[in-house]
Design a protein around this nucleic acid. Sequence first.
DNA 1: TATTGTTATACTCTATAACTATA
DNA 2: TATAGTTATAGAGTATAACAATA
Lengths: 141, 141
Amino acid sequence: MTDTVSFRLAKLGQLSTARFAEGLAPLGLRPRHCAVLGLLSGPPMAQLELAKRIGVTASVVVDMLDELEAHGAVRRIRDTADRRRQLAELTSRGRTLSSQATQLARQIDAELLLPLNAVQSKGLRDALALITEAQGHDARR
Amino acid sequence: MTDTVSFRLAKLGQLSTARFAEGLAPLGLRPRHCAVLGLLSGPPMAQLELAKRIGVTASVVVDMLDELEAHGAVRRIRDTADRRRQLAELTSRGRTLSSQATQLARQIDAELLLPLNAVQSKGLRDALALITEAQGHDARR
DNA sequence: TATTGTTATACTCTATAACTATA
DNA sequence: TATAGTTATAGAGTATAACAATA
């Protein structure tokens, strides 16, 4: 059990999340906000689109955007073409926070990858990317 | 951000946990019970020892053992040498559940590793093992 | 006094369902 | 009727702190 890939992913995932939580606290952010900041680096996105891409339900996105808006990190813009929709976009403060969060992720990466050599690190990076991509195409999500 | 190892570990960890939850439900187990079943495959272990190895607080172990005991999967034995301690051990039903859970983990592994070839799979397995081991020695845990 | 286990409580994360406003 | 977003509520998972029994 404990030597399976899935068990270790579950465990290292928790560890990763805990490190994000530690490092993000001074910024007033929590781990779940990272996906939003990451996805909004491009053009504005509707809330349901965010929900689908992140893999959470709509109400979670509402919550996260409320929090990020309170921090001045995102802005909601009512879509003039379809007034039911709201497009979320990063403010300049949001872009700053986003790059700080990314920097933190790279720090965590560096610590986690310490026991691996360059070839092993690249192999891990690529393998996780392949699995992530495959799951993205998967019907379950 | 979304292309970092730590972000992907966090996300794939959630995915792994969700799959465990699905597959374990028919057995009356939840993901967090897996670590206990895995660790108790050897000789009986005191509750605080379990807590330290799993990386949770003592009260969580109490909870999990209560649940596993209700399923007839584990037994608590008062340590005669130090009557404060209780040693937890698997029952034969616990051993059955443990092997079923392990089989489930292997199935999940197989699905996750589908997009990887044999070399990549072995590389991932080894890399995760190295990181897990390094973290195990780490002072933080 | 310190340690093992327990209980009570609170907080985070997520999902579901009922609601509103638009379409 | 259907869809985008919102609110209210509930469940799982964890941690902290106060407690009982034993050392």
